[in-house]
Amino acid sequence: MIDEAERLPCGARLEELLAQVADGAPPQDEAHQSGCPYCQTALRRLRRAWTDVTDLASEPVNVPERLTAQIMARVRVLVGQTADFILLGHPRGETRVSHTVVVRITQRLARTIPGVVFASARVEPQNSPLPNRVDLSIRLVVTFGPALHRVADAVRTIVRRQTPRLTGAQLDHIDIKIDDITR
């Protein structure tokens, strides 16, 4: 049995030798260790034993196939509980479209523009008597190359044209912020 305070007959602490093997830490007393049969034997055995631990650590772990979907289903339930809606009036009933849906459609549209790597949108509250009228703010990450204002204009154009067509929302302001560029 190994005791954590155990020392080898030469006085070297096993714990220090193990840190040397596991962490690649330098020896406490290199001159002693290189010529000490006790230390050399212990190091050999520790290295052999520790190889099994590193083998286990490098063993691939397969994430359950539907884990992302399960997580996101639970998150979307939470989002649905708190999301606001735009209201589309109709003589025979009303239709509500979640802000989350407006946002996701806007993001997808923005990401179709060449140069847009990432788009995140948000519906901004508006004090409008029209329940389907909203402002949008969009944040982008764009590749290096295209003129940023042209990318922003293209995003604004497609969103202004397509988001109302697909969601029934009426858009007022579309503010765009470019957060970062990538290679």
Binding site: M72, T100, V103, S120, R122, R139
Partner: peptide, 10 residues
């Protein structure tokens, strides 16, 4: 930051 703003895709 996007997720903090409610972006589920992020």
């Amino acid at each position: 930051r996007a997720a903090q703003n409610g972006d589920v895709d992020a």
